[in-house]
Design a protein around this nucleic acid. Structure first.
Lengths: 151, 151
DNA sequence: TTAGGTGCAAACGGTTTGCCGGTCA
DNA sequence: TGACCGGCAAACCGTTTGCACCTAA
């Protein structure tokens, strides 16, 4: 879900911990886990805690400095349709819907040509606003829901 | 990772629990969580346990009857490159690598036209074998690693 | 008859969070 | 000085698993 930015973000300080987390992540082309990053950072800041690494990773992600590769939530969703198709995830209401456009198998061929990897399948997720949420946003712009935090 | 199918799968029984889990999932176009499925199934089998729902979901997924929408593992990976790009995940060694093909923004336009949703971004993951693992597989075919379970 | 499945509850494990003392601006 | 941040450890919570009993084939 999109987080409503009512109370604007606090000013971010530059701390050693945050800097090193970012440097570690920028210095590799692998896509490491939080735990691996923690181990690397510890070589330079031995007493850093795992919680701090997590906090800074989330922060850096929110600041647009890095990308998190997950599925947006901690739990799985299941789909009764086992045939290849794409999904759309509404960033407001969180619903996941099937996308009715043809599967772009030519992308797999492109990857094969470019990198020489065997590609068996691919997956695509789109992110945005569904019709209902898009409409609701517009109507809320005309008549703001509350006056809090609008100063 | 691909699971090596050494000891072949056991014969699957048809149980009421498994049947109802599948029916519930087939009867909706939403993409429910295990917990939601559990609640629905409980309306028909009140004393079914959550563990059984999970076991059957994994089983049905392995049987190709349903799809699981997760990121393949329980933990996040992080990417020091915040610019839009695709990823390739090797099903053997588990490494995640950047894909160097152009981002297909025209897909977002297709979704917009087809469904009328606002699309802000999309994500693509490819699955297959990287060059090293692909090569290793071939050499193992010529000279099988062990003789266990080959009968 | 028996391999496979279920219910139950405890364990697992990646991630988050509350508390309090430390630090950057 | 005070908002922000870090270390620590406990809590969280979706998921997995061990065990004893049950059941489809």
């Amino acid at each position: 879900m999109i987080k409503e930015e009512k109370g604007r973000e606090p000013k971010r300080r530059s701390t050693r911990q945050r800097r090193v987390v970012l440097e570690v992540l920028r210095s590799t082309t692998s896509h490491p886990t939080a735990d691996w990053i923690y181990e690397q950072v510890r070589k330079r800041i031995p007493n850093i805690s795992l919680g701090t690494v997590y906090r800074n990773l989330k922060l850096l992600r929110d600041m647009g400095e890095i990308m998190e590769l997950d599925f947006g939530s901690t739990y799985s969703r299941f789909d009764g349709n086992p045939n290849p198709h794409y999904h759309f995830s509404c960033m407001d209401c969180g619903r996941v819907m099937d996308v009715d456009i043809p599967v772009a198998t030519e992308l797999e061929e492109k990857v094969r040509c470019r990198h020489g990897w065997e590609v068996f399948s691919h997956r695509v997720e789109f992110y945005g606003l569904c019709a209902e949420c898009s409409r609701r946003r517009l109507s809320e712009e005309e008549a703001p829901p509350t006056s809090e935090g609008q100063g």
